[in-house]
Write a protein that binds this DNA or RNA. Structure first.
Length: 466
RNA sequence: GCCCCGGUCGUCUAGCGGUCCAGGACGUCAGCCCUUCAAGCUGAAGAUCACGGGUUCGAAUCCCGUCCGGGGCACCA
């Protein structure tokens, strides 16, 4: 959003330097999620650009060169400590209640010996030499001046034994190579920033503007993660969240335009966006508010648009409409949609609300047919008289049905709710359903007559064999 | 344990020394509307601005301490 507002470029870079954690298809999933959300990038692995390649595993030479340069200049050194030794060191530190960290063992060893070991194929990493004392300060656009003591940071790995860089090296090398002006990342990275500064300085690069964004927390106040059932963008999409609603909602987590606006278009958000207005405290993800906002966006859609967006959800196998209806008749759906538009918080909720409009018969429960305060006899009479209306009313539309049934209720001495309730159950098979007469009008005379007839039949049979 | 960053209604937030006995939104509750459920409208409850000290004529706003929460301390990002 900042890039969009300031006329900058948004670059997508794939940081895949951990070979052990490669997940097939993950990159595609991330890119498609971003795209679905409407976050279009100017440069990236799929669209290319002047700073290609955009995948770190394809830029390994750059990192290796940088690491070599740092070793040559004395800013970094080789280390062949085994995982076993590192583990022992850590345990010892723990026992002595010292802060964990590399003890600098190889820093004091003969570089020639280590580089010979590396040439011989030993597992050797490159570590940065962290100053033993003193402090670093940097300015974070959200937090202001931040200060760290070097003493709290130990010599960290920048190049792993498999030849891949760690995040720390890769990010610095690439940010420089790709002319990144603003590093915006989650607050969990703020403690790594001193390392990045150290690498920047020793490579002769200038530090980009640093911006650490507040974390999004789970309802239990811990970091949002898979462990806590964190939802991915994909899941929101599957639940029928509108991308424009999610975008709007997410933009408001940790940022506000400074006035009372909440429901905003993408353009309004981009125009109002300002890094300095980002909050510096973490926020808990409020699903209920997202659902409300999604409902707002759903209600704003034109019936045709909503029908089109609903179609994939209605046609799918799990949680969709009965399979016989596919492909969907969009013209019919467009007429149905206004009946449920106000009732939707997510697109996935539509199917159970309108499934009765897509089947030949609905199953009706006898006890639901007879409303509170109504006897079986008068319910039966009411439905019999209703049949007459359904057969004869002209035209078969919302207004005429409304007028005739209202008159019938009065004539029978029933409350409108009692009569309409019984009809609703007969027609839809549900106690809760969209407005009755609009529904009837769409269903058409024949289907309504058949359903009321069937309900009457059910009552009659129940009466003869009690 | 050490380091860093936070702390305004349950939640998201406005607030940048007086206009704030703190405003908006979600949620909750009540009423209206009403054929059910929603939506909509109206109203209500809900924050001693984490706590304690300063600074100041005046502090949610500035300073210090405490407490609480989170993050980080890997050949993970």
């Amino acid at each position: 959003m900042d890039a969009a507002r300031t006329g900058g470029r948004f670059i997508v870079r794939i940081e895949d330097t951990d070979q052990a954690r490669l997940v097939p298809g993950a990159v595609e999933a991330i890119l498609s999620s971003l795209r679905w959300l409407g976050l279009d990038w100017d440069e990236g692995p799929d669209v290319g650009g002047p700073h290609a390649p955009y995948i770190q595993s394809e830029r390994r030479e750059l990192y290796q060169e940088a690491a070599d340069r740092l070793v040559e200049s004395g800013a970094a050194y080789l280390c062949d400590c085994s995982p076993v030794r590192l583990d022992e060191v850590r345990k010892r530190q723990e026992a002595l209640k010292l802060p964990p960290g590399y003890d600098g063992h190889c820093r004091r060893r003969d570089p020639e010996e280590l580089s010979a070991a590396r040439r011989a194929g030993a597992a050797v990493v490159v570590r940065m030499k962290v100053p033993p004392a003193g402090e670093v300060t940097f300015v974070d656009l959200v937090r202001g001046k931040v200060r760290f003591s070097w003493a709290t940071i130990s010599d960290f790995v920048i190049l792993k034994s498999d030849g891949f860089p760690t995040y720390h090296l890769a990010v610095v090398v690439d940010d420089h190579a790709m002319q990144i002006s603003h590093v915006m990342r989650a607050e969990e990275w703020i403690a790594s920033t001193p390392r990045h500064i150290l690498i920047h300085e020793n490579l002769g690069y200038t530090l980009p503007t640093m911006v650490h964004l507040p974390l999004l927390l789970a309802p239990d106040r811990s970091k949002l993660s898979k462990r806590h059932g964190a939802t991915s963008v994909t899941e929101f999409r599957d639940e029928g969240c509108l991308p424009e609603a999610l975008f709007n909602f997410l933009a408001l987590m940790g940022w506000s335009p400074g006035d009372d606006r909440e429901v905003m278009t993408r353009e309004e958000i981009v125009e109002a966006f300002w890094l300095a207005r980002i909050k510096d405290s973490p926020a808990i993800f409020d699903r209920q508010k997202l659902e409300w906002m999604n409902g707002v966006y759903i209600r704003k859609l034109a019936p045709r648009q909503l029908a089109e967006r609903l179609a994939p959800f209605l046609e799918r196998h799990q949680g969709g409409l009965p399979p016989a209806i596919t492909p969907l008749d969009l013209d019919y759906l467009e007429k149905v949609v206004p009946l449920i538009q106000d009732r939707l918080k997510g697109l996935a909720e539509a199917a159970p609300l309108i499934d009765f409009m897509y089947v030949d018969e609905v199953s009706v429960k006898l006890e639901e047919l007879v409303q509170k305060g109504v006897t079986a006899e008068s319910a039966s009479t009411a439905l019999t008289r209703s049949m007459e209306i359904l057969r004869g009313v002209e035209p078969f539309d919302h207004e005429s049905l409304d007028r005739r049934f209202r008159a019938l209720a009065e004539e029978l001495g029933l409350k409108t709710g009692q009569l309409f309730g019984a009809l609703r159950v007969a027609i839809t098979g549900k106690v809760v359903a969209p407005p009755l007469f609009e529904t009837m009008a769409i269903l058409g005379r024949d289907r309504c007559v058949a359903r009321v007839e069937k309900a009457l039949d059910l009552m009659t049979r129940a009466a003869v064999q009690p």
